[in-house]
Each structure stands twice: as structure tokens, then as C-alpha cells.
């Protein structure tokens, strides 16, 4: 296994970069980070719509969340590959489509996490904010959301872990991230797939497990602050 690592570590980390397109673990992390950055505002808006008293907001948001959470991610990815070029009216590179798919998928999961965070903020906070003259919007922005988001930070980190694992599905649509890079090496070496996929699993494990450990520490720290 070590000789595979010695011969291929650079390819697994960055793909053919700088002589070719960026790939490998770097692309995996970029896919995950950009998708999360896009999904976060989407998730907040969906969560707000989901708890909104206005039916016109609540029902579509609830339906969207239920729909996306009921589907396998690969189904969402296939839909994205079909719909994104139609909606945008032009061809888009594969990794961009992948980011759209991951962001949509993750937004639905984040929305439920953030909703739980909003509902966990004591009602007295809203009443007190309204009583000192803050408008509804100000109450939400300055009182409810800061507390809600702070409480869900560990869950957000866990969602990032799931997202990092989920980027491996880009392999199925042929994007040269870590899993795809592993399959390329496996095709080249032919007779050593167990070692290569084991090695790549260790790559994922190092990233995901450190993040999980970080989220557990955050959870303890937040519990202290209360």
C-alpha cells in the first residue's frame, strides 16, 4: 500500500494540477466547501419559510424539503444533469452541475437542522425583543437567528462531513475527484484494487474523523456556555 501512496500521492491530492485540471482530494474539498457555502443561505431561507406563519411560504418550503429528503442523492444529481442546462440555457461544466446538485440536496437537510435551532430559541426571547420595540424582521435577524445558528454549529460541521462523503458520488458522473482518481489508479495498476480503495478510504477518514472530533468538542464547549 505504501508504494502506491509513494507513487501517486500528488495525483490523489491535486489530480493533474498544475499541468492539467485540478482534481483529487483538493477538488473533493472544494466541491464540499462551495456546496456548503451555497446551501447555507438557502437552508436559512428554507427554514424561515418552513416556520413562517404565511401558508404561501410554508407549504412550498415544506414540500421541497420533503421531496429532496425523500430522494437518493444520485437521483438529485441525475435531475441536475438533466435540468441545469435547460434552466440556464447553456452547457455547464460537470463540476458546476455537481455543486448545484449537492447544494440543493444539502439545503433541504440544513433547513431541518436550522428549523430545530430556531424552535429551540425560548419564546420569551421573541416576546422580549418585540416588547422593547424591535420589528419582526429585526427580532429574527438580531435575536432569533444568532442564537439559533450558534446552537446548530456542531450539526453544521456534521453536515459538512456528510457532504464530503457525498462528493464521492461525482465519481458516477465522471468528475475527477478523489474517488475517481482512485479508480483511475486502480485501472492502471489492475491487480491491487483492495489496497487503493483502502488507501482512499483512509484519506476520507482522516478528513471526516478530524471534523467529527472537532464538532464533538464544539458541542461540549457550547453546552458549557449555556
Amino acid at each position: 500500500m505504501l508504494d502506491i501512496l509513494r507513487d501517486n500521492w500528488l495525483y490523489l491530492l491535486v489530480g493533474q494540477y498544475p499541468d492539467g485540471p485540478l482534481g483529487g482530494l483538493a477538488l473533493t474539498l472544494i466541491l464540499a466547501a462551495v456546496s456548503l457555502a451555497l446551501a447555507l443561505p438557502g437552508g436559512v431561507l428554507l427554514a424561515l419559510a418552513r416556520v413562517s406563519p404565511a401558508k404561501a411560504l410554508r407549504i412550498p418550503a415544506t414540500a421541497f424539503i420533503w421531496l429532496v429528503r425523500g430522494l437518493p442523492l444520485i437521483m438529485v444529481i441525475f435531475w441536475a444533469y438533466f435540468l441545469v442546462p435547460i434552466v440556464l440555457g447553456m452547457a455547464v461544466p460537470g463540476y458546476v452541475t455537481m455543486i448545484y446538485a449537492l447544494a440543493f440536496f444539502t439545503a433541504a437537510y440544513l433547513a431541518e437542522i436550522i428549523r430545530a435551532g430556531i424552535e429551540a430559541v425560548p419564546r420569551g426571547q421573541v416576546e422580549a425583543a418585540r416588547a422593547i420595540g424591535l420589528s419582526r424582521g429585526q427580532t429574527l435577524r438580531r435575536v432569533v437567528l444568532p442564537q439559533a445558528l450558534r446552537n446548530v454549529i456542531p450539526s453544521l460541521v456534521n453536515q459538512f462531513v456528510s457532504l464530503t462523503k457525498d462528493t464521492s458520488l461525482a465519481f458516477i458522473v465522471g468528475i475527477n475527484e478523489l474517488t475517481y482518481a482512485a479508480s483511475q489508479i486502480s485501472n492502471r495498476l489492475l491487480d491491487r484494487p483492495a489496497e487503493i480503495y483502502g488507501l482512499v478510504a483512509i484519506f476520507y477518514f482522516i478528513i471526516c474523523w478530524s471534523l467529527t472530533a472537532w464538532s464533538r468538542r464544539l458541542e461540549r464547549k457550547l453546552a458549557w456556555g449555556r
Binding site: 464521492s168 484494487p193 480503495y197 483502502g198 477518514f205
Partner: peptide, 15 residues
């Protein structure tokens, strides 16, 4: 829990 299911499937199938 901290490795992707897809990588595990590839491991079982090819490995």
C-alpha cells in the same frame, strides 16, 4: 461512519 459508502462499495466489488 467516516468514509463514503460509494468507496466501500467499490472496495467490496473490486477489492
Amino acid at each position: 461512519r467516516n468514509t463514503p459508502l460509494l468507496v466501500q462499495l467499490l472496495f467490496w466489488y473490486f477489492g
